[in-house]
């Protein structure tokens, strides 16, 4: 394999990996405050992308994306207010089943709202054929947008969780929810905020990747599964782990295409994930206690 080829695979792996990492971070935010995996996370990406696509003919692109992010965050809040808060018996499994139900419902609503056509946002800079030459490998400028937005999201979250009162309260919920409540933190509101935050991040990611991966009513499921795999690989609740896990899975997929048929791409990445799980049952950076504490 020539150097240029290697670089090409590497870049495509890192791009896909950073998309997975953003989805996984969305999972982690909700996991940290509620202890559940929100299976509707992929649908937030789809909703964000679809809303922005519908708005883009009428308003400038940045405004369309902003409105899409806000609308999706509202959907996240509504989900929490109408359903998660009202659960009679909020065990982990019940909540997971609810989010599965939600993902099905959101997908079906999207199907009836937007039909089953594949759409996409216009490229943020240039068009489909614009490409940038980096040391002999060619990439679309949109790839740089994806990498840049992922980096901004990660930095923003880092600052948010470290320096703002809300962010710190959310971290307090993550480490011990009873203690957080005793300190006067309104844990229920934290859950709402975490749903809004992860919906907003999902929507933003959905907009940025839309030109590359296209958006369809059911594009969320496969992204959610990848994101779940990445979150588990990195250790649930650990955002650094999510980035490492995301790039690992992205690279594995990219290089598996060079040796095996495309059809087996997912199978290869998942097999390696399983092997890692068998060796380290709590993921790459996960703490052992975390696994013991939050289970079904």
């Amino acid at each position: 394999m020539s150097f240029e080829q290697l670089l090409q695979y590497l870049l495509s792996g890192v791009t896909n990996g950073s998309i997975y990492a953003i989805v996984a971070i969305g999972f982690n935010i909700i996991y940290n405050t509620t202890g559940i995996i929100n299976f509707a996370q992929g649908e937030f990406l789809m909703l964000g992308g679809m809303t922005a696509i519908s708005l883009s003919p009428y308003v400038p692109l940045p405004l369309a994306i902003l409105i899409a992010v806000i609308i999706t965050a509202m959907v996240g809040a509504v989900v929490d207010f109408l359903i998660i808060r009202r659960l009679k018996k909020p065990t982990v499994l019940n909540m997971v089943i609810v989010t599965i139900g939600l993902s099905i419902i959101i997908r079906e609503i999207a199907l009836h709202l937007w039909d089953e056509k594949v759409r996409s946002l216009p490229y943020f800079t240039g068009n489909e054929v614009t490409s940038i030459n980096i040391l002999g490998a060619y990439i679309s400028p949109q790839v740089l947008w994806v990498l840049g937005v992922s980096a901004v999201i990660v930095i923003f979250l880092g600052v948010f969780f470290k320096f703002t009162l809300t962010g710190r309260s959310m971290r307090a919920c993550a480490s011990n929810i009873t203690a957080a409540r005793l300190c006067g933190i309104n844990t229920r509101n934290m859950v709402t905020i975490s749903f809004m935050l992860s919906a907003a991040i999902g929507a933003l990611a959905g907009c940025v990747i839309s030109p590359i991966t296209q958006t369809q009513y059911d594009c969320g499921t496969s992204l959610a599964i990848k994101g779940f795999a990445v979150a588990i690989l990195g250790g649930l609740g650990n955002s650094t782990g999510a980035i490492i896990g995301g790039i690992t899975i992205g690279l594995l997929e990219a290089f598996s295409i060079s040796v095996l048929p495309l059809a087996y791409k997912d199978a290869i990445a998942i097999s390696i994930l399983l092997i890692i799980l068998f060796l380290r049952p709590s993921g790459l950076l996960g703490k052992k206690e975390a696994v013991e504490l939050k289970e079904f």
Binding site: I37, V92, A229, L236, L274, L277, P281, V291, E292
Partner: peptide
């Protein structure tokens, strides 16, 4: 494996 990790492994 336990909890979500078991769910992911069987899903995988």
């Amino acid at each position: 494996l336990k909890g979500h990790y078991l769910a992911m492994a069987t899903l995988g």
